[in-house]
Design a protein around this nucleic acid. Structure first.
Length: 431
RNA sequence: GGAGGGAUGGCCGAGUGGACGAAGGCGGUGGUCUUGAAAACCACUGAGGCGGUUUCCGUCUCCGGGGGUUCGAAUCCCUCUCCCUCCGCCA
């Protein structure tokens, strides 16, 4: 949620910002918000005035001895109540409409974000590492994995349908090694505190991190208990300090959390269907920060470094892409993606997305802090970033570390996490 | 799943229809005293909305959430959520 005062005071400027996001539907709501906001405040002033009268007279009634005068006052207040009820009903309607509109207004871009209509205009900021040269034709992971017996698409489909797969043997262990190594790296080197959270959360938690209402069709839910399944750990981490007022000296708070993520992928139907690029369930190690408003952009750059450290240590070529305004998404003011090179698929794969949401989520989830003892609470800034998403890292490892014989060398940093295993070969499975 | 008991400010806890945004205590902040600290004493100490002559003033709302009764609700009624105890089931 953005600050409604911004819309009230500078509606045209806000419209310009939303135009940069290419969100026409949201821009069309601004005029309605301005009108509803005015109505709301007028109704509020009127009904509060009546309430003040009622409060005052009711206290008088309590002290009155003269029964006739008392009954007259009570009758008078019944009339006042009828008016209060009428205005209240109107006010509720106006507020419901106002809230509905506000829930669909995206966050506004930071001034440093390049303006562009869509993802085709995103800027490659930096590229690291050398693309590997092969003296054979590198295979895609959907051939490599099954041949090694570490990745099974047919059985995944048998269990759960399209966009599911099963990891087996050294494949399963490789993913587990990656998760543990990434967590340890962020905990030990980058100062994050590990969190294990519920995978299922309440509806208002989804609203707090801005998954709802806009992305409802991407979410799985349990209709009977009304639980929603996490599409990312960002959801639970945003809401971890919901309705809290933090002390300034608690900030920054840095969390890292491994979860499985569940996404219906209705919006990407037909895209990335081959292999394990885009599943309905995937593992992700998520970094998250709560900061003061003054430090959030430094924190964004730091998180970019944190995710880059993972890529660097794995020895896989990667690049940093800055999103243009038209590809920022709903909640971010500024966003970077990290992409790893996958020579078998011959494409750059997004393995991390790092965003500053400023106070957008904090306002929705009501997470505040007190800058000074005794000062008024302010909204914190929140940032999230994958560190990293597992399936595409698995793809990148398989495809970059593949050998002519179809085996896959295990990156050195992971070997201690895999019992010293140096190479995944087909016969490894039966061992 | 069955039965019962609860939810009050940062924390503990009193309050069963009228001066209650809420006793008292703890904690916190400031002050007095002190060379300093402690102790003691004194004062202050929730959040949000709206308006204004905007380091302050006025007003409304908030006693788990929502709804209702009433001139008036922390207090009465309905409902939901959560917590606790006992029983059952269970990784």
């Amino acid at each position: 949620m953005i600050d409604i005062a911004l819309i009230r005071e500078q509606p045209d400027w806000v419209k310009e910002q939303i135009e940069k996001l290419n969100d026409l539907a949201a821009g069309a709501r601004i005029d309605a918000i301005v009108t509803l906001d005015e109505q709301r405040r007028a109704l509020l002033a009127e009904v509060e005035d009546l309430r003040a009268t009622r409060n005052r007279v009711s206290k008088e009634i309590g002290r009155m001895k003269d029964q006739n005068a008392r009954q007259a006052k009570i009758a008078e207040m019944q009339g006042v109540n009828a008016r209060i009820d009428a205005i209240d009903a109107e006010l509720r309607e106006v507020e419901a409409q106002l809230n509905e509109h506000m829930a669909w207004i995206p966050n506004l871009p930071h001034e440093s974000v390049p303006v562009g209509p869509d993802d085709s205009h995103n800027k490659v900021v930096a590229t690291y590492g050398e693309l590997p040269a092969f003296d054979f034709t590198p295979q895609p992971h959907w051939d490599l994995g099954p041949a090694l017996g570490i990745l099974d698409f047919e059985r995944g489909v048998k269990l759960a349908g399209t966009r599911f797969y099963v990891l087996l043997g050294a494949g399963a262990r490789l993913q587990r090694a990656l998760i543990n190594w990434m967590l340890d790296l962020h905990i030990n080197q980058h100062g994050y505190t590990e969190v294990i959270s519920p995978y299922m959360v309440r509806e208002e938690v989804m609203f707090g991190s801005a998954q709802l209402p806009k992305f409802a069709e991407n979410l799985y839910r349990d209709a009977e208990e009304d639980f929603y399944f996490l599409p990312t750990a960002e959801v639970s981490l945003t809401n971890l300090h919901r309705d809290e007022i933090l002390d300034a000296d608690q900030l920054p708070i840095q969390y890292v959390c491994y979860t499985e993520c569940f996404r219906r992928e209705k919006m990407s139907a037909g895209r990335d269907v081959r292999g394990m690029k885009r599943g309905h369930q995937f593992a992700k190690v998520e970094m998250y920060r709560f900061t003061t408003p003054e430090t959030s952009y430094d924190a964004l750059e730091a998180m970019l470094q944190n995710a880059g450290d993972v890529c660097r240590a794995l020895g896989i070529p990667w690049r940093v892409v800055q999103m243009v305004t038209g590809d920022l998404g709903f909640a971010a003011t500024k966003k970077y993606d990290l992409e790893m090179w996958a020579p078998g698929c011959a494409e750059w794969l997004e393995v991390s997305s790092i965003s500053n949401c400023e106070a957008f989520q904090a306002r929705r989830a009501n997470v505040r802090y007190r800058p000074e003892p005794g000062a008024r609470p302010q909204y914190v800034h929140t940032l999230n970033g994958s560190g990293l998403a597992l399936p595409r890292v698995m793809i990148a490892i398989m495809e970059n570390y593949q050998q002519a014989d179809g085996s896959v060398v295990v990156p050195e940093v992971l070997r201690p996490y895999m019992g010293g295993l140096e190479r995944i070969t087909a016969k490894q499975i039966s061992d």
